[in-house]
Structures are given as structure tokens and as C-alpha cells.
Simulated scan of single mutants.
Amino acid sequence: MFAKLATVLVVALSALSTGVSAKPVPTTGLAARGSYSFDNYGGYSSLSGFDNFYGSDNYDNSHFSESSIKVVKEKEVVCHTERIEIIQQRLLVLQEMAKRIITEQICEVETQTIVFEQFHSSMHGFSRDLRRYSGRSVGYDSGITSHFSNFYGSDGSLSTDDWGFSGSSLGSSYVVPSGNNWDNSRSYGSVGSAYSAARSAVTKF
């Protein structure tokens, strides 16, 4: 759903633009499924190489599957419960960091929009993981999260060095925390209800 919304938003932006055609370029017969190239979309050089990260047919990283995951056996992690405010604080920091990266390191508002919608829609995949709809293990890539401490340069500004991975690297060092209360006999229903309640609370824009 989020991928479709992103496509609608991009098309709407292109309709408002003038000069260079900004319509995403279909790369295969799968265009109806969202197989578009955003390399140099609208003539913006800031989008050069965009497709290299996930692929032109994988805008929202929906191709990420269980077969892409290699669980790191030696990293046994058990979940533990913290105060909900602590969790919300950390997630808000991540949210604002994403906004900082996009607004400080991208100048074209069109590119900002495309990159944010990609980020936003790819997170929906984790929602499906949590609800056990995706078929993927519920966890995270420890190799990628290890770069968190590299966000800043020595002067406190955002770093600009290449960390040496792409979207296809996701899953190669996967950690699946244990200890949660998932129960196949009841959790599909209870988590589904929690999801519906959460979505009902979301303001419609």
C-alpha cells in the first residue's frame, strides 16, 4: 500500500513540474507493479545511481525475503522490556535523524520526497514482519546497525563517507531476538487487533 502511495505522490509531483519530463521510466514489463527507474529522475543529478541500492524493481525493498537472511548464530539476544517512554524517545531520535539526513544532505525537494517515500514504504515491511505476514524472521541486521556510531564526523557534522554496503547487503548478519510472547494459537488475532487499533489512531492526511 505504501509503495502505491509513493508512486501516486511521485506522479503528482511530476504533473506539477515543468521543463524536463519527470515521469519515472519503466524498465521492464513489470511497470504495473512499480518497476521504475529513478536514476536521474526529472534530470536531477542527485538521483544518479539511485537504482543501484535496492534495484529498479525493488523501490520499497519488497524483494527482501527469508532466503536473503543469514542468522548470526553466535549472537544470542533475548528481548527485555523497558519503559515505553524510553522506547519512544529512541524512536523519535531515529525519526529526527532521518529528517536531518534528508534535509541537510539533499538539496532538491523532489529527491528529498522520493528518498523519504522509499524509506517510509520500506519500513512497512517490518510491520508485516511483526504481524508474521511476510514469512521473514523478526529481527535486524547487526552488521548494518553497527554503523550507527559513524553518523557524525569529528566536528559533529553528519558524516559523508561510504560505509560500503547496499540494500542487497540487508540480512547478511541477521539477529533474531528471542523471548517475545508470540503464540501461533492466539497472536495472529491479538496482534491483528493491536494493528487495527493503532491504524485507527493515525491521523488521515
Rank of each mutant, 00 (worst) to 15 (best):
S48G: 09
K70M: 09
P177F: 10
I102F: 08
D161F: 10
S121T: 06
Q88G: 03
Y41D: 11
E82C: 09
S178G: 07
S68Y: 01
S127Q: 03
G125W: 00
I86G: 05
H147C: 04
A98T: 15
L158C: 09
G55I: 06
I86K: 12
S142V: 01
T145P: 02
S45I: 09
V175L: 06
V176P: 00
L94F: 11
S157M: 13
H147M: 07
L130E: 02
S46I: 10
Y133R: 01
E66T: 01
S173Y: 07
H80I: 01
K70H: 08
T113E: 09
V93T: 11
F165P: 12
V175W: 04
V115Q: 13
Y174N: 03
D57S: 15
Q105L: 14
L94V: 10
S121G: 05
R128Q: 06
F151Q: 14
Q112L: 12
S65V: 02
G55E: 05
V138T: 04
Q95R: 14
Y133T: 00
G125E: 02
R90V: 07
D51P: 05
S166V: 12
K99C: 12
I69F: 01
Y59G: 10
H124I: 02
S154N: 13
S134P: 01
F53V: 03
S65K: 03
P177R: 09
F151V: 14
V77E: 09
N40S: 09
G135H: 02
Y152S: 15
R132A: 00
G139M: 07
I102V: 15
V72T: 09
Y44T: 07
G179F: 02
S121F: 01
Y152D: 15
T160H: 12
N61W: 08
N61Q: 13
R132K: 04
C79Y: 03
S166Q: 15
S46Y: 08
L158A: 10
V72I: 10
M123D: 06
S56K: 06
E66P: 00
D51E: 12
N61P: 02
D141K: 02
S149P: 02
S62F: 00
G153H: 04
R132S: 00
I144W: 07
F64Y: 14
N52C: 03
S172N: 13
G171Q: 05
R132Q: 01
I114S: 05
F148Q: 10
I87Y: 11
T81M: 11
D51T: 05
Y133M: 01
H147Q: 13
C107L: 09
G143C: 06
R132Y: 00
E117R: 03
K70Q: 13
I144P: 08
S159W: 10
D39Q: 07
F126C: 04
H63K: 11
D161A: 14
G156H: 12
E108K: 09
E110I: 09
S166T: 15
E66Q: 04
Y59L: 10
H120M: 13
G43D: 13
T81Y: 07
L170R: 05
I69A: 01
S68G: 08
S121D: 07
S45D: 11
G43Y: 13
L158F: 15
